[in-house]
Design a protein around this nucleic acid. Sequence first.
DNA 1: TCGATCTTCACTAGG
DNA 2: TGAAGATCGA
Length: 717
Amino acid sequence: MNNDLLAGLNAEQLSAVTWPAKSALVLAGAGSGKTRVLTTRIAWLLQTGQANPASILAVTFTNKAAREMQTRLAAMMPVNVKTMWIGTFHGLCNRLLRMHYRDTGLPQTFQILDSGEQQSAIKRLLKSLDISDEKFPPKQVQQFINGQKEAGVRAGELSAHDPYTKKLIELYAAYDAQCNREGVVDFAELLLRSYELLSRNAALCEHYRARFRFLLVDEFQDTNRLQYAWLKLLAGPDNALFAVGDDDQSIYAFRGAEVGNMRALLADYGVAGPVRLEQNYRSAGTILDAANALIERNDGRLGKQLWTAAGPGDKIRLFDAYSDGEEAQFIVDEVKALKRDGWSLSDMAVLYRSNAQSRILEHVLVQAGVAYRIYGGLRFFERQEIKHALAYLRLAINPDDDNALLRVINVPARGIGARSVENLQTASREQGVSLWQAACGAGGGRTAGKLAEFVLLVEKLRQRCEPLNLAEQVSLVIDESGLRAMYEADKKDGEERLANLDELINAATGFMPQEPQLAVVEFLTQASLEAGDHQADAGEDALQLMTVHAAKGLEFNAVFVGGLEEGLFPHENSFNDPKGLEEERRLMYVAITRARQRLYLTNAQSRMLHGQSRYPIRSRFVDEIPAELLQVLSATVKAAPVTSRSSWAEPAFVQQKAVARQGGWRVGQSLSHTKFGAGVVINAEGAGDDVRLQINFAEHGIKWLDLRYAADKLTSL
DNA sequence: TCGATCTTCACTAGG
DNA sequence: TGAAGATCGA
């Protein structure tokens, strides 16, 4: 029966799937059947009797990936996937903490803060400590705290000599204290808490080690320090850690991912080397050749060459537009041409480096009447109406939830303004009680009446919710809080928001809690852990628009990569750091390898960015692709008869367009200044004798220089 | 308290 | 450019 399971695997896949019961690193190239290997590995372990479902723990980064793994596994063999622990790092940690909440010092009903809520908690903390949020921007404090948590370090273990860091450490400590007081945890805390739970409780740790003999990790290149430490803790000395990843697709260093974990795993577990999955089942040969040539320029790779049994396919089409508008027009025209040829819109994608690039595309798409769908933007559980409703629900369970209280104390407006809230916060601080308790005890004052009404409302919600089931509670809260009335009165987008609130009631109706008496808590937890899909109505056949990051893991018959310009892709923020540039190159590698048959690379010679025109030069990444793989298209024959398949064809000669230059300098050019050192031109203004350059210096930051004075201090690099 | 106006800021983003 | 947050006046 094994044969069934293993049929159709290539030699490398087979070697990975049937790897003995010890640790391994699988270096899985783009389109090499990674998910298949992972799920088949689990099925094989079960089928050969090496593992039972309870001894499997599989970790992914996204809920989508976790679901996909479960679905595919269930399709592969009749096994109850519920007995396995398959989920995201955060989902599994949440599970551990809920099960052992007594050992963690958390209330059973602890709530999870998303990053927005974490930030408002920090703002509130700064205010209560009377610390200026100019000197300590909440975002930076948040980054510091999360960074420390991801390094596994608590405030108490830190020390510093400079007053600034000292203050940050104090804030970290105060933030944790506030969270503990309020019974909430942020995302990083989920990880760190469960790490500490296991590392401080030998018996518990031993219990899980004895249970989870087989740990499997997807997208291992995206793990941060703490996640790897967590895995190592669970693996202990005896269990098998099977990690699948691709160092060439590591594009999340900016949020703490450590590609180094891949090499570390080899060393830590004495694995001779990675199993390489290099056969690609997705893209045409030319596309792979381009990807290979590009990524070869990066240093320190584990090394891998993608190849395909399929033919070379089409050349990669290159279009050099004179403006961002022309670039968008080209893409849309080409999409229409492909559609006429029978390609479906949903099998085509436009990828870009940054979300701002979608605007002009949308504009042209609307004009052309082409259906499109943008990934990105608000997700379901991030919408304000949903957050408001959930905040009332939270107050109904636990009125001491200051975050929730602050969110809705004046929504809908009930005459409790900023002033009154501030008074309330002062009172709560002075008395050392929650805002709710302070509100309950509030005596005089101008808004005391309004406050009392709010207290009464929450009390009423609490009492009336008690006997109700989850869906009834959600519904009650929406009606009684006044949210429904508020959105009914809202002419602008009230209708849509009401529809979303109804959708929330639907979600609550269909929700299946593990423990019925904790249904509300579980529902709220799920809402924090799974914010929902980025895109709405997936039904219609529509062109897909998304960032390259969002495209990771996806594939399309035709892919357009737009904005291939120095400063944009690679992004200028990565110019002064070689590591940053390598990550940009990996991002380009990800973009290229999304395409099955057809790949278009486009750039514009002028682009509106932040309301200013820029004249960037073409991205170095285009030049890093061997010329023989490229076919240059040009607009010169745009007026060709409509019988032409595409209105943009290869010209008889490649038109040499003038590159925008200012005083001999170009945007994107690297240079050196006698005083400021190395930098890159990121913008230019003026003409003739009166030219100013904006330069991003590695050491001195961004400066405008007047060429009349600076010209002789600059040298090209 | 609320709306209108001003200022600021800008890459990528999962749980 | 344009969205979002801060500030100001009614």
